[in-house]
Each structure stands twice: as structure tokens, then as C-alpha cells.
Amino acid sequence: MELTIGHLYPDLLNLYGDRGNIRCMQKRLEWRGISAHIKEFQLHDNIDFNELDIVLLGGGSDREQKLVCQELQSIKSDFKQYVEEYGVVIAICGGYQLLGSHYQIGAETISGLELVDLYTRQEEGRLIGNITISSDLFDMPVTGFENHGGRTYIGENVSPLGKVITGYGNTDERDYEGVHYKNVIGTYLHGPLLPKNPELCDYILTKALERKYKESISLSPLDDTAEIRANKYAQGRK
């Protein structure tokens, strides 16, 4: 078996160790004897979503995110089709914000990809710190670091990724974090996200394999002692 992972615009969206997420998916496939192909796309590259099994959209600075936004409008309809057909997407920080209809920064509105029913508005102060959430999708809490000025409001027909245990999450309310729609996961958690949250990584890999091979997949277990230790330790950080 094999999977192809598309990394969108790593030159621009690479702020918080997103390479670690790619590496984590790649290694956890390879350790199970599954090939992983990584395709990096630069601005203006043609993206054929039919070739991709997982899409990673990372975070960038506001300036760089704006550069990306203009480009995104040209891939919007293909990307939408991919998502509706249960294509797997993992979107982090800025990438999470781009999933929505728009990002409001003061008087300026940046158009998003309109893939998921959500929007983001920049509000006073940044939400920064360690964060831990509980998600119905996983047994272990999901832990990471958040640093965002935007507050993300998700629609009634999409689910959050999880409930906030410590930290902020989508807004100042400290209630819910991230979004889960079909096979799209959007979240503010970086750290990077996947190495310390192996269940989440395996969930993504399983969904992608099932979609590609049209059969039920049960990944062989790995020794996650180090991952679980790091996850538990991070949960306790202030």
C-alpha cells in the first residue's frame, strides 16, 4: 500500500514546525511497511487533487497568508470537490482559518476556501499557550500549543474537534477547539500536532487508506511509549 501526502505551500506556510507533521505521517506509514510520497506544492503549481490522499495546510504569518489567499481562489473548486468526496485534510493554525468563508482583520476581509462552514475574526489580544483538549474521536487527550489572534466561529452543522480542558481553543470562551467535517480536521494546535498525538495521526492515515483502498483498515500497532510520555508531560505544562 502507499499514500501520497500533498504539502501546500511549505515556503509560505511553515511557521510552527509543520515539517514535523509531514515527517510524523511519513514515518508512521513507513514503520508499517506502507510507502509515503510527499509532494510539495509551491505557489502557482498546478494541483491535481485526484493524486492526493492527504492534504496538509499549515500556518503562516499574516503577510504570507495573504499571498496564499490570492492563489487559493484558483484551486477552490477542485479542493471543494476533494473535501466533499471525503478527501483527508489536516489544516493547522492559519491553514485552519483558510478553510472557512473569510478572515476578518479590522476593516479588511480575506476570502477563504469555503470548504467548511466557519469564519474567523481577529479580535483584541492573542491567545497563546499550551492547550489540551478531549475529543470523542480519541481515547487520549490531544495536546499542543496555540498562538492565534483570530477567533474562529464554526457553523451549527459542523462539529468541533474537541472540548477544551486547558487553554483557549476557537474563541475566548475556552469551550471548544477546532473543527471536524467529513475527513477534514482543522485545529489551532501546533507543537507540531501529530508527533505527540499518535492516535490523531493514525486516524488520518486510516481514513486516507480506507478512502483509497475502499476497505476497512486496521493499522498494526506501534510502540508509542515515547509519544504517550511526551503527550502526558505536555498536558501538565502551564
Partner: peptide, 15 residues
């Protein structure tokens, strides 16, 4: 370490 002067965010290790 991840004390205040180090930055609490250690994701840079992956860069």
C-alpha cells in the same frame, strides 16, 4: 527547556 525566557512554544525544534 520551555521557561518564559526560552519561549513556552517548543515547536521550533522541528525546524
Amino acid at each position: 527547556n520551555d521557561n518564559a525566557q526560552d519561549g513556552h512554544d517548543i515547536s521550533w525544534l522541528w525546524d
